[in-house]
């Protein structure tokens, strides 16, 4: 019996699995492996599983966090091995352990946003993007949950940024707020599109690299 935390990656073909489908998939993975989970009480009991920060469909991550409770005492390393033989392609259990910090201490995310340019990166693009995102405020228009448009200043939610030019792409490595409120790193690309239309990318790839606490240390 015990609370456990699973650190896992979501990559490749698995990036298209939606949050809801991921929950269902993980539930089945535990059942496949015969790992009994604690269930909620009530009329429709369901296993208590929670994913720290749901990832947008299409984004990849090497630092997803799932909290759950098993009915038996299980050894983390053994559980990682078992889960990995039952997970679909692209989902990879990295480690499993008894959590020390509550998820609310996960304050920041280190991410990589790739802006792809089929015709090559324009001269000066890296500097222009860096300048834009270093302004005091960077306002973008964003669709709210109610489907209305709202303005959002993303600048206060961006804590550090490096911009590198790569082959046919600009790579933004950023640290952003994780929650309350968090910043979806895809909005960095949206800001470029809105404010530097000449540098609107042909495609954007987003990847979560690391979960951080408020001091900027790795969150586990």
């Amino acid at each position: 019996m015990g609370k456990l935390r699973l650190l896992f990656a979501k990559e490749g073909r698995a990036v298209y699995i939606s949050h809801l489908d991921l929950m269902r998939t993980l539930q089945r993975v535990f059942l496949r492996e015969g790992v009994a989970l604690r269930h909620s009480q009530g009329f429709h009991p369901h296993p208590v599983l929670s994913i720290a920060l749901p990832l947008s469909v299409g984004q990849s991550s090497r630092c997803e966090i799932l909290d759950f409770e098993t009915l038996e005492d299980l050894e983390g390393e053994e559980l990682v091995r078992r889960l990995n033989r039952s997970l679909p392609e692209g989902l990879l259990a990295r480690s499993c352990y008894v959590p020390v910090w509550p998820v609310r201490e996960l304050e920041k995310l280190q991410c990589r946003v790739e802006l792809l340019y089929d015709a090559g990166v324009r001269a000066g693009a890296a500097e222009a993007v860096k300048d834009l995102l270093s302004r005091e405020s960077v306002v973008i228009r964003k669709r709210t949950k109610r489907k209305a448009m709202a303005e959002l200043d993303i600048r206060p939610l961006l804590h550090s940024l490096e911009v590198r030019e790569e082959l046919g792409a600009l790579a933004l490595e950023a640290v952003v707020s994780a929650q309350n409120p968090g910043l979806n790193p895809a909005l960095l690309a949206a800001a470029v599109e809105a404010h530097l239309p000449d540098l609107a990318p042909d495609f954007v790839r987003v990847r979560r690299l690391e979960a951080l606490d408020k001091r900027g240390e790795t969150f586990r």
Binding site: Y16, R28, V29
Partner: peptide, 14 residues
């Protein structure tokens, strides 16, 4: 990213 329910177009299932 532009289509509904993209998971059905990629395979990779268990």
């Amino acid at each position: 990213p532009r289509v509904q329910k993209p998971a059905r177009y990629v395979g990779g299932e268990y």
